[in-house]
Design a protein around this nucleic acid. Structure first.
Lengths: 236, 236
DNA sequence: CAGTGGTCTAGACCACAAC
DNA sequence: TTGTGGTCTAGACCACTGG
């Protein structure tokens, strides 16, 4: 006689997919109340733990709203959130099949200018290493990196010439961080951006700024300017 | 005699925090191999399940790399990823304490122009509802919404005048979606953006484009242009 | 092949919040 | 007060993959 088929267990992925299905195409429209975990566990023939994990993940995705005693409801307006990967420039470029090149433009150890000191919340005598460098794709300018590194907190940075590798790559493998603030904006091209990035003065530039903190102190602040026409894209 | 203290159980949060601590400030530097789940469970006096959840979440955060048989390692270059919330404009504005106002500028039912048809992958005779509207904060223009809605897939949209509420709010409570593509860029101000958003021609504009799909068809495409100086910021 | 993570289970207790 | 989700446990089997 044939052995009974493996009788696959219901996985939390199965449950998650089925609930998702019922939400997007089935009977559970926006605002509706879902059955409790126990009930669903019975229906799906699995343990409550499994249902719980499925629903927890849907909750993290922002599709449902869970409250003790009140139960689980489908969100009326799904929490819209997008995740962006922030790759190393080198990887971003090489991923498209283009060749990557790094060029150091300037490197100075100085007192932080006021605006930088403010951004990084440096006290007086804020010694910083300022590095300006260019990342190119197939020989054409791709991204200009305007980097400021806290030289008091990271004295070893003074031994780095950054002739061959960018501060970006040095930092990620050397400096821990606990907190990152990142912002996107559109600015008008000027100065170094015009000079090194094939921009005409006043032309729109997509710009990313990032401050990295560790133990309450800013380790580094960077302004990244991209070549004309750059887009940052994601799907979810 | 005093009852013995509650003898708090170790939670997965405790474990997560402790591991995080050892990674960022302790002995587990980038690249190092962490103890196995069983070993950690013994050390922390909890079940393997608890350790597993803690490590799974750290893995989702991109801080550690887990592989069967190989064990768990601290990532050399932490996966950089940023999460951006995509709020309704109304909420974004009201959250800052400013007053919100909606203004309909234009509404036309037309054949999709080529560039829109391409974006939304519409076939021939792609009927779309085009809505242009403005979101203001404290009476000043804040965001211009250039919206295209698939009128074949969503015939009921033709009954909506959009005089009082924006297509944005109508859509989120009406149309399900399975897939979203979003992109950010810097563009030069022109046309309606200049006319309605206090931009001078050629001035940089921060622009978000979003296409929303359901069951393989594009439901809507929108281009959002922000007032001068707008920043999109997040922390993680 | 054997070690490590991935997941399921059945049961339990608890915290919160709606009633 | 009581129902619902949040979490822990101890044990089990399995899947992947490195050596």
């Amino acid at each position: 006689m044939p052995a009974s088929p493996p009788a696959e267990k219901t996985t939390f992925r199965d449950v998650k997919a089925e609930i998702l299905h019922r939400i997007t195409e089935g009977p559970w429209g926006p605002g509706s109340l879902l059955p409790g975990e126990v009930e669903l566990a019975e229906e799906f023939g699995c343990s409550r733990t499994t249902v719980n994990r499925a629903m927890r993940e849907l909750s993290e995705l922002g599709l449902i709203d869970r409250r003790r005693k009140a139960g689980t409801r489908v969100r009326k307006a799904p929490l819209r959130q997008a995740r962006f990967g922030i790759p190393l420039v080198r990887e971003e470029i090489e991923a498209t099949g283009e060749s990557y090149r790094y060029t150091l433009i300037a490197r100075r150890l100085i007192e932080a200018p006021d605006w930088v000191a403010e951004r990084m919340k440096l006290g007086p005598s804020g010694l910083v290493l300022h590095v300006l460098c260019l990342h190119s794709a197939n020989g054409r300018p791709y991204q200009l990196e305007d980097r400021w590194i806290n030289a008091n907190a990271l004295p070893q940075v003074q031994d780095e010439g950054f002739e061959a590798i960018g501060p970006n790559e040095w930092l990620v493998t050397t400096v821990p961080f606990s907190d990152v603030e990142i912002s996107f904006q559109a600015v008008a091209a000027e100065g170094a951006v015009v000079q090194h990035l094939d921009h005409r003065p006043g032309e729109p530039v997509f710009c990313v700024e990032r401050t990295t903190w560790w133990q309450g102190a800013a380790m580094t602040f960077v302004a990244l300017s991209f070549r004309p026409g750059h887009r940052m894209t994601t799907r979810y």
